[in-house]
């Protein structure tokens, strides 16, 4: 692989996972209470995908990374302050809802169109990355649909490792049942990898990277086109946080022996 990869990472914002989430009725779809006030982060799995992309691009001369994000412009803007110092990338922004209740098919159509519109993208060298699920819709389907629309028929889900072998083939480890990996070898780009956690720690903040990224991020945000996600055909019936408060029996002042005995009896029951 002498020419390097063109890596497109699909990933957007999700409410910071530690926030309290409560659904409220919305227009086209359910919404979250105080949705606009919730701080957001880059979706954790998309984050892993982005860091893996940057790592691979750094190792493979001639490579380039794009981050394609669909979300409300103002929130994307804020998100970029948190992400842009991490790794070098060029942003492609789409202005639209980032709700978990948007339709994966519509999102895939919008993302595929945006990717098709990237100037200078060489589809033969394309590695399409994303998360294996999102912390919002949490379905794990969008990246595959984008890949399919782009005509990429080598796809991998829940990837923890992607290695370019001598000769250019790509070895991939995907998570499967029971904490094991399925190993596959693909001839090379183009392919789709929807990442699990990968193996890289979150990169440190680099002010230089941030400064460099911001030069392209600001114009990208300024020209972010609207993405229409009408959710047509879907009827939302209920959306709720299940209230399953349990009556917790608190056992204190018992000895370790007594507690252990009770636990063992329970385990065997």
């Amino acid at each position: 692989m002498t020419d390097g990869f063109h890596i497109v990472v699909c990933g957007s914002l999700v409410p910071d996972p530690i926030q309290t989430l409560e659904p409220v009725p919305g227009g086209d779809r359910p919404a979250l209470k105080n949705e606009a006030m919730l701080p957001s982060v880059l979706d954790p799995w998309a984050g892993h995908a982005l860091y893996e992309a940057a790592h691979l691009a750094a190792k493979t001369p001639g490579s380039k990374v794009w981050l394609v994000s669909l979300g409300p412009k103002a929130q994307l803007q804020q998100l970029m302050m948190r992400v842009a110092q991490k790794v070098p990338f060029e942003l492609v922004a789409l202005d639209g809802p980032a709700s978990g209740f948007t339709d994966s098919f519509e999102v895939a159509v919008a993302l595929a169109q945006a990717i098709e519109g990237i100037d200078g993208l060489d589809r033969s060298r394309l590695l399409l990355f994303g998360g294996c699920a999102s912390a919002s819709r949490d379905a794990g389907v969008t990246v595959q649909m984008v890949g399919e629309r782009l005509g990429i028929h080598d796809q991998f889900l829940a990837v923890d490792e992607l290695k370019v072998e001598d000769g250019g083939s790509i070895r991939v480890l995907e998570r499967v049942e029971g904490g094991r990996y399925l190993a596959s070898v693909c001839e090379g780009a183009p392919l789709v990898a929807a990442w699990a956690t990968g193996s890289l720690p979150e990169p440190p903040n680099s002010p230089q990277v941030g400064m460099q990224n911001m030069r392209t991020i600001m114009p990208a945000l300024a020209k972010a086109g609207p993405a229409t996600l009408g959710g047509e055909g879907t009827t939302w019936l209920t959306a709720e946080v299940p209230q399953q408060r349990r009556e917790t029996r608190v056992v204190k002042d018992s000895s370790a022996d007594e507690i252990a005995q009770e636990i063992v009896t329970w385990i065997k029951g």
Binding site: P15, A135, G233, T234, V241
Partner: peptide
């Protein structure tokens, strides 16, 4: 949805 935080029911045409 939202990582097992919200459960929703819906239909599609």
């Amino acid at each position: 949805f939202y990582r097992q935080r919200i459960v929703a029911k819906f239909s599609r045409s």
